[in-house]
Amino acid sequence: MTPRTQGVVLAVLAAVLLRLAWTGEYLRFVTPWMRWPLLGAGIILGFLALRPLLRTDRGSDHHPVPRSAWLLILPTLVVFAVAPPPLGAFLAERRADQVGTPREPVQIAAGTGPLTLLPGELQWAAAQPDDPVGLAGREVSVTGFVSRDAEAWYVTRLEVFCCAADAIVTRVRVAGQDPPPRDEWVEVVGTWVAGTGSDPAAPPVLEALRVTPQQAPRNTYG
């Protein structure tokens, strides 16, 4: 790899990282706090690319790099040519038998008004022994994408801790409404079927009153 090629490879990688961080596309791959590390890495890589790019001679240098460095172009080609979408139903269905560490909801208003919960929060609430948030008989709104299995459909989210490779599925089974297309984002409003979801291996069931299509959120993981 000639020095000028090294410069191009680094500059292209820098540009991709900056673009992902700038446009918010990075949220398909990693968690929100990675934005600043990505911007920083993009700027530093751009700086590293400067000197070899500005070289005028085409000779080899005394710092040869192995052929494997060519692989650094591959992520860029994939980002541009395939534009990978956020993970969705395909992965959720493959990993459906995994049960994440239940996450306690950030805030739940006690009382009788309608509740808005993430699928994972509803899973947590349904698994508690004495229904501490008062799910029973209350209207609950859950938003996520549609995933399916042989028997039922689910309103689903993927929870990501570090990068998309470690996504864990959280989901709520929906009863009483026809399934929308897979991967469509929907808001499901319904009531929790008391007793379901107490065993972590089986998701809670929501008896749906209505299902409304939604725009996918900016950050689909959560």
């Binding site: 791959f29 990693v30 990675m34 890495a41 541009f80 395939v82 990978p84 979408p85 990068c163 998309a164």
Partner: peptide, 29 residues
């Protein structure tokens, strides 16, 4: 510009692409 996504052999390949880029993007900094 992303039009390969349509030809790319279905969901499995696209999921691989997302995971691959995710690991690289997370690790590079």
């Amino acid at each position: 510009g992303g039009s390969l996504r349509e030809y790319a052999d279905g969901e499995a390949f696209r999921t691989w692409c997302t995971m691959f880029v995710a690991v690289v993007v997370q690790s590079t900094p």
